[in-house]
C-alpha cells in the first residue's frame, strides 16, 4: 500500500515536471544573422577595423531604414536578413557608411563614404523543437557590391553560401 502511494507520487511528479519544454532556450540555434567580417585589402590574412561604421537596411524602394549598427569602429558586423516565403530568392540590401562623424563635424573637407551591398539567398525552414517551432536558414547566398564613384569596399568573398549558424563569418569584405 505504502509502495503504491510512493509510486503514484513519483508518476505524478514526473508527469508535471516536464513543462519547462515550452520556452525556447536562448542557447538553441534559431534563425541566424548574417555575419560579415572586414579584412585588409593589402594584407588579406589580416582583419581590419572600419572606423565609425554605421549600417542601415535599405528597403526595396530604396528608402534607408533604422540603424543596425551606429558609429562603431569594428571589424565584424551581425546583420538581420529579410525573409518571407520559403524557397523564394530573397534580397536584403545594406548601406555601410564609413567615418560616420565626417558628415556632421565642422570640417567641410571630409565626407562620410557610404557603400551598398546586396545579399541574395533562398530561405529554407527547418524544424527545431516544440518550443522554438521552425527556424529559417539561408541557402545559395550571393553578394553584390553596388559600384559607385568612390567605393571604400574594394572586393568581397563569400566564405559560406549556406547561412545556418552564427559561429563564423559568412561574407568577408576587403577594404
Amino acid at each position: 500500500m505504502k509502495k503504491f502511494i510512493i509510486l503514484i507520487l513519483v508518476i505524478i511528479s514526473i508527469g508535471t515536471s516536464c513543462e519547462r519544454d515550452d520556452i525556447c532556450s536562448e542557447n538553441t540555434s534559431t534563425t541566424p544573422h548574417l555575419i560579415i567580417r572586414f579584412y585588409n585589402v593589402d594584407d588579406q590574412e589580416q582583419t581590419k577595423q572600419v572606423r565609425l561604421l554605421t549600417v542601415n537596411g535599405v528597403d526595396s524602394d530604396g528608402n534607408v531604414l533604422d540603424n543596425i549598427v551606429s558609429s562603431v569602429s569594428t571589424d565584424s558586423i551581425v546583420l538581420p536578413l529579410r525573409f518571407q516565403n520559403e524557397g523564394v530568392i530573397t534580397t536584403s540590401r545594406f548601406a555601410l557608411k564609413r567615418d560616420s562623424d565626417f558628415d556632421t563635424d565642422t570640417n567641410d573637407t571630409t565626407f562620410s563614404n557610404t557603400d551598398e551591398i546586396v545579399v541574395n539567398y533562398t530561405p529554407q525552414f527547418i524544424y527545431v523543437s516544440r518550443a522554438c517551432g521552425y527556424k529559417s536558414v539561408f541557402n545559395d547566398t550571393q553578394n553584390t557590391l553596388i559600384v559607385d564613384s568612390d567605393n571604400w569596399i574594394f572586393s568581397y568573398e563569400i566564405v559560406n553560401t549556406t547561412i545556418d549558424n552564427e559561429n563564423a563569418a559568412h561574407i568577408i569584405l576587403y577594404h
Binding site: T30, T31, G57, P80, L81, E86, C132
Partner: peptide
C-alpha cells in the same frame, strides 16, 4: 500553421505560414 522563430524583427514581424 507555424511562425518562424526569429529573434530579430528589424525587417518585418515574425513570418507566419
Amino acid at each position: 500553421s507555424f511562425t518562424v522563430y526569429n529573434t530579430d524583427q528589424y525587417w518585418q514581424q515574425q513570418f507566419t505560414d
